[in-house]
């Protein structure tokens, strides 16, 4: 757990998001934060990598984040991109509620569900889909296009499901406590 920060380290928004002044957020107009999300120092969030062309039905959103998320120091959130019909394009990235992203983790997933813990130094490949109640251990490398079902513990390089989580996983993965601490 990170120690309590010096006052003034975070900018607090109306919905209770706490964004570090030292974080590196690009294209903030394309990022939606659900509220009560904490973004620590040196985090990089690439909201500028949005779908090319005119805004479609989903608007300009590049990264949508739910409530009570926690992005630890120097983690990177980057919308995935691929060549489709001859043109390279980025795709939006969606994160659910209570998503913990550990220190130095790189996330390029297409979708991350709720109650997901991504350990420090983990790498989530492009277009990976992580469902609810998943714990990804430290240093795991999840291959691109992987789908991780609910209630899984993922470890290794490449990340494979090593264990099923118990029914109480949702309680242990909740992040309301961390929000109160900061």
């Amino acid at each position: 757990m990170p120690p309590k920060q010096v006052k003034g380290e975070y900018i607090e928004t109306d919905t209770g998001n706490k964004v570090s002044r030292k974080s590196n957020i690009l294209g903030s107009q394309n990022i939606i934060l659900g509220g009560k999300t904490i973004i620590q120092a040196d985090c990089t969030i690439r909201g500028d990598l949005r779908r090319s062309g005119a805004p479609g039905q989903h608007g300009n959103v590049a990264i949508a984040v739910g409530r009570y998320c926690f992005f630890a120091r120097s983690s990177v959130l980057r919308p995935p991109g691929k060549v489709s019909r001859g043109a390279f394009s980025f795709y939006p990235m969606k994160l659910g509620d209570h998503v913990f992203i550990g220190e130095g983790a790189v996330v390029e997933a297409a979708m991350v569900g709720s109650f997901v813990h991504i350990g420090a130094g983990a790498v989530i490949g492009k277009f990976a889909i992580i469902k609810d109640c998943v714990r990804i251990e430290e240093g795991t490398v999840v291959a691109p296009n992987t789908v991780i079902p609910p209630f899984s513990r993922v470890a290794g390089r490449p990340g494979v499901v090593v264990e099923e989580l118990p029914e109480t996983a949702q309680d242990s993965l909740e992040l309301k406590g961390i929000y109160r601490m900061i």
């Binding site: 309680d171 242990s172 909740e174 309301k176 406590g177 109160r180 601490m181």
Partner: peptide, 11 residues
């Protein structure tokens, strides 16, 4: 101690 306090919700 603060984390234990937060436990009341989860427990």
């Amino acid at each position: 101690r603060s984390s234990s306090r937060s436990h009341r919700e989860s427990a």
